[in-house]
Each structure stands twice: as C-alpha cells, then as structure tokens.
Design a protein around this nucleic acid. Sequence first.
DNA 1: TGATGGTAACTTACCCAAGGGTCACTTTAC
DNA 2: GTAAAGTGACCCTTGGGTAAGTTACCATCA
Lengths: 191, 191
Amino acid sequence: MPREEREAQLVVAGTEEFGRAGYAGASMVEIARRVGVTKPLLYQYFGSKDGLYLACLHRAGDRLTEGVATTMAAGGEPEQMPLKVLAAIFTTFDHDRYAWRLLRDATVPATGDIAAAAADYRRRLDAFAVLGATQLLTSRGLADPVDIEAVAQVWTGVVDSLISWWIDRPDEDAAAMAARCARIMGGLFGW
Amino acid sequence: MPREEREAQLVVAGTEEFGRAGYAGASMVEIARRVGVTKPLLYQYFGSKDGLYLACLHRAGDRLTEGVATTMAAGGEPEQMPLKVLAAIFTTFDHDRYAWRLLRDATVPATGDIAAAAADYRRRLDAFAVLGATQLLTSRGLADPVDIEAVAQVWTGVVDSLISWWIDRPDEDAAAMAARCARIMGGLFGW
DNA sequence: TGATGGTAACTTACCCAAGGGTCACTTTAC
DNA sequence: GTAAAGTGACCCTTGGGTAAGTTACCATCA
C-alpha cells in the first residue's frame, strides 16, 4: 500500500483512538493494530507519538476552523448563527466524530508543540465564539465582557456535549442532528 | 500527623491532580509531593492508584448528588431549576472546583471499580437532568424522549464548561458565579 | 522517674510491567 | 538491483507498586 494512503488510514485511526482515550491514554501499538500494521511503520511515517497527534490535530483543526469561518463570514441574524455553525460542524465531521475532541484534550503535555498548536486552534475558535456571543448579548443589552467570555466558553461546551452525545448514536446523521437542534432551540428559547 | 488528617490532605491533592490531568495523566508521586510525603505512604493509606481515585470520586460524587437531590426535591418552576441547581453546585464546590471533573473523566479504565462507580454517579445525576429536561420540554410541547436525553446531556455539558471557566477565575466566588448565570439566562432566554 | 516495648507515621531503595522509540532485517514491486 | 513497505526483536524510561527498615511517640511497669 502506498505511503500516502497508509498515512491517511493511520491518521483516521489515531484520531479515533486519541479522541476516545485522550493523548495520555492512547497507545501507539493499538493505533497501528487497528490499521493492521506494526508500530515501527507508524514511527517511520510520523516520527513520534507527538508527530502523529499533530497530524491528527492539524487535519481536525484546519477543517473545523475553515468550516466555522465560512459559516460565520456568511453572516445572518445572531440568533441563527449557533444553529448554522452546528450544522456546518455536523456536516464536516459526520464520519469523523472524534476529531473535535483533539482540540480539547486535557491530557496532552502542558508545554510543547501539541499544546501550542491546540491552543492556537482553540484561540481561533474562541474568537468566533466571542464574536457570536457579543452579537447575541449586546442585542439584549448585556455588555459585560466577562459575561461574554463565559457565554463563549459555555457555547464550546455545548458543542462538546452534543458531539459526545452524537458519538454514542451512530445512526443519527448530520441532517437529523441539525434538525433536532433546531427543534429544541426553537422550543426552549423561541429562537 | 494523624492518619485521618493526612488522608484528607491526600484526597484533596488527589482531587486537584486527577481533575487537572485526568486519571491517566496524573502521577501518584506528584500527588504525594504536593502534600510533602512520599509515595509509599500514599500506598499504605489507599492501596493503589484506583483506591485513591475511588476515595476522591466518592467524596465528590456523594456531595454532588446530595446537593442536587436536595435542590431538586425542593421543587419550583422548571425554568428556575437550572439556576437553583447551579447555585447549589457552586456553593458546594467553591473551594474544591476540580471535584466535578472526576465524574466525567474520560481517561479512567473502561472497566473496573472506578468505571462502575463513576457510571453510577453519572446515572444518578443524569436522572435528575432528565427529570428537569422533561419538565422543561413538556411545558413547551416537546415530548420526544430522545430530544429530552439530548437536552439532559447538553445540560451536564453546560455545567462542565461553567466549572472549567470558573476554575480559571479563582477570584470569582460562588455567589458572584450564580449571579452571573442568573443575569445571562435572564438576558438570553428571558427566564 | 526512667527504661522498655509496641505501634503508627514515614522513608530509602528497589522491582516490574507498559509503552514510547529504534535497529537490523525481509519482502515486494518496478 | 534498488527503493519503498513492512516486521521481529530489542532498548530504556516512566510510573505503579512493594519490602524492609527508621524515627517518634506513648503506654506500661519496675
């Protein structure tokens, strides 16, 4: 099998394993086993556990920030943005649901390349979240910047828990997930 | 120092370290070092890493389920329950903010005593969340049980992210945190 | 009162399995 | 024949876990 194709397989398997068990809990030999190869090949292609994690992280982070940026750039009513962003995330990661977790893994080493890259992706996503929260809160007369930060962080937590819930329900596809969120938000908040 | 007192110190240090780094990422020697003792004493008192984790988990889980149960039992408007529960959680864990994370640590081994105990606490808390979500959604004409489950899980995710945010702001006390949540929910949802 | 023995707190130094990482080698395709 | 895909067997550090011993305190008793 050509290197490029094998690497893609390994990144997919790594994303699932890192997403499931976290960086600290994931095992390189287990990731290799999933693909049907052995550990030395994994090291030949990615150099180290950090190298593989970074490859997984960049793939996930780039796709995610791109999708969110496109959606946010399109604009619209502040109340509609959360749903639009959710729909974009669900569509992008329908077959790769663990990817989101890589950006929010608490078990990566506190310093080093991984921490820096993950912090950078989180920073970019947080900026979008803060932008959305600002639009939403100011339209309702709430201007405290600390409130806005809190709402932005809760928003990422909501995405997090929706994706965790989704991972446990593989039969629910992206469209059904988006429809469910729309129905719930409409009912609960009148949005 | 008497055993009882030392054990309490170690449970506090363990809760912080497990909460910060997760079960897989936490180190027993680091936990002992925080308290100023060495690893063998930790093992003499708790037997194993699992034993220490279970001690931390039970302390956190018991206090949490008790506080939530008391609050839910008091009853009230469905729209007011989330705020009341949040206020109870903030008050209970004002000086022990990492405790919540032990119930939701993804890096614990998938089987064994810890997994069973954590699943049990989560099950009890989920039951409260489902109860609250049912009251809230049925009052708005949403009766799909799958929607209710999703809302319940998102609710726990909201608590999770609020606590993470709070951990990063040690100057904000429980009362300020509750007031902030009340202000935001009032502004965003009109609750 | 002071020697004595026992117990609980605590440490140094070690064992061992797991897992990240490497080397030398074999197979396969062009 | 050579270059790339791939492997078996190994090294070594990390970290969970333990054995054996030391200190400090306190109750007891000539």
